[in-house]
Structures are given as C-alpha cells and as structure tokens.
C-alpha cells in the first residue's frame, strides 16, 4: 500500500509552503476520508468503493479512516473542526447530517460543512409484517387513528434517520405511534418478523428479498419510487409531504477554498463514471446518485429542515400524551 513516510510528508509540506500559489490546486499529501461508522457497514462500503475507484484520478493516496461512535456524530465533529485544506473529508448525508443535530445538541451543524459530491442515495422503505392486516399506508393510518399509540414502529436507534422518518410521517398523517428503538436496522427487522413491533424501515434490497419470500408488505418509500421495487408507492404519491432518504456523499469543512472543492468534486465525479465503480455499484445495489457539492448541500438542508419542522410541531411527543 502506498503510505507516505513521515519524512515524505514533511517534504510535501515544505513544497506547499515554498511554491507560490499555483493556478490550480493539486493535493500533495494523503487525503483522509473519515467514516463515522464501523468498518464493514453500508457507509463504510460506499466510502471504500468510491475511494478505490477514485484512487486512479488522484496523485496522492486516499485513506479511509473509521471513527465510529455516537451515530456518526463523533466523526462529524472531528471533520467540522479539522483544517479546511481539503485533506480531511467526511462521508455524510445520513443520520449524522440530517437527523441527529435536530434531536440533540451536537458540536457541529450542517453549516460547518460544504458539499463535495453526493455518491449515492438509498431509498427508505416502510414495511409491515405480512398477515398483520396493515398492507397499505391507508390501513396503517386507519389502525393508528382507531387505537392511538398502540401501533409501534422500530428504529435503528433514537435520533437516527429511521426515527426521524417516522416522526415526519406520523406528523404528516396526524397519527400517534409508539417508538421502540433497536441497536441498528437489522434487529428492528427481526423484531418486525417476530411480531414484536408493527412497522419499521428497511433498504430497497432488503424489502425486495423479504417481499419475494412473502414475509413482509412494503407499504411505501419515504421519498420517490425506487427503481428496484417500482410497484411500491412513495409517500409523495400518496399525498404525504415526506421526502427523506439515506444519502451518502463527501463533505469538507465549511471554509475549504472553492478551487479545492472544485478539484475534489471533478475527480470524484470522474471516478463515479469509471467502470470499476459502475460494475460494483450495479452488482451490489448501490444506487449511484451523483449530485454536485452545492446540490448535495441543498438536499441535506431540505431534509434536515423537514425533520426540524416536524419536531418543532410536536412530532415524536406522542408517547408523552399517551402516558398521561
């Protein structure tokens, strides 16, 4: 592997200082891509895939570094405080960007970052257990109105993007459901299959596999329709103003200069068109969703705002009323 020795690093630094500001920025030391989740997970895989595909485009090594902890906020905090020189990037766009900062105090906000590129978008699919009678959004809403607070949804953890999606949805539909958090999406799906909760959110690939086996109903996606499961309606189709997705992309600290961001965006965009990237993405259900840095920022901001709105209007407090 191509890790520069400290001495080389120092040389590189010296060169940056000595050379007069060149017209175009070119990286001169390894670029660190920080992942806020453990190795092997979905975020990590996306990061490593784009890093290995983009390596050809870069004159320096791209190093993926995992800083797991606190739903990705640990890594986000670190990158928000990092030197804005383009050598430290964060894989963002999921819970740590659009969800957690709306629920609790974090030492960063979306304003601390600027988008570099969006790499993929993953639809979120609301599912219920087959045979539960809740085979459509209408059925869910009706049942929830009949017995407020009795239906329960499982999330991947408090303040995560699954939790937020349900808060926005219940707020929109004017219903009241109980939140039961699990340690991740898979335990929540297991609980759904075991009949311990009524509803949860999975990825399109998971939904497709379980639907084929006849174990679940996919009632809706939380944004537009997914190509992978075209028959499942989206909440927008059904008249609910919900548009949330689990996105993955790269962001840099807010004060990173334009030319640096431009350089990074171009290189990563080229990488996303490479054969290495498209073959693996295609095979492994990673839905490429290129967006420029600025558009990625906007997308994150609009999703984050919708969560903030729902929370301000009392979303997620339903169980409090039920308890009294």
């Amino acid at each position: 592997m191509n890790f520069a020795k400290p001495a080389l690093l120092a040389l590189g630094l010296a060169a940056t200082i000595a050379a007069p500001a060149a017209a175009q920025w070119v990286p001169e030391k390894p670029i660190r891509i920080i992942v806020g989740f453990a190795p092997g997970g979905g975020t990590d895989q996306t990061a490593r895939l784009i890093a290995s595909a983009a390596q050809e485009q870069f004159p320096v090594p791209l190093v993926v570094e995992n800083r797991p902890g606190a739903s990705g906020t640990l890594a986000a905090e670190m990158v928000a405080a990092a030197e804005p020189d383009g050598y430290t990037l964060l894989v963002a766009g999921g819970s740590e960007s659009t969800s957690v900062p709306n629920h609790m105090e974090t030492q960063y906000s979306l304003d601390d970052f600027r988008g570099v590129v969006r790499v993929n978008r993953e639809h979120m699919v609301m599912v219920t257990k087959k045979g539960s009678g809740l085979d459509s959004v209408d059925a869910v809403v009706e049942a929830a109105k009949e017995k407020p607070g009795e239906l329960a949804y499982g999330s991947s953890g408090p303040a995560g993007i699954l939790h937020s999606a349900f808060i926005v949805f219940t707020q929109e539909a004017g219903i009241d459901m109980t939140h039961v958090p699990y340690q991740g999406g898979s335990p929540a799906l297991a609980a759904l299959l075991g009949g311990h909760i009524d509803m949860t959110i999975v990825t399109p690939a998971q939904a497709k596999a379980q639907m084929e086996a006849g174990t679940i109903n996919a009632v809706a996606t939380t944004s537009d329709r997914s190509e992978e499961i075209p028959d499942v309606p989206s909440l927008t189709d059904l008249g609910y103003d919900v548009n949330l997705e689990n996105m993955k992309g790269l962001v840099a600290p807010a004060d990173t200069p334009d030319e640096v961001v431009k350089y990074l965006q171009d290189k990563f965009a080229q990488a996303m068109e490479s054969e290495a990237f498209t073959t693996v993405a295609d095979r492994s259900n990673i839905a490429p969703g290129y967006l420029s840095g600025a558009d990625f920022e906007d997308a994150m901001r609009s999703m984050s705002d919708s969560v903030a709105n729902a929370l301000e209007n009392g979303g997620g407090d339903d169980s409090a009323e039920a308890a009294q």
């Binding site: 629920h103 408090p158 303040a159 997620g316 407090d317 169980s319 308890a323």
Partner: peptide, 8 residues
Amino acid sequence: AMGSGDFY
C-alpha cells in the same frame, strides 16, 4: 431540559 421524548 433536552425534552428528547418521554418514557413510561
């Protein structure tokens, strides 16, 4: 203070 939800 944070008002992050309620519990039973």
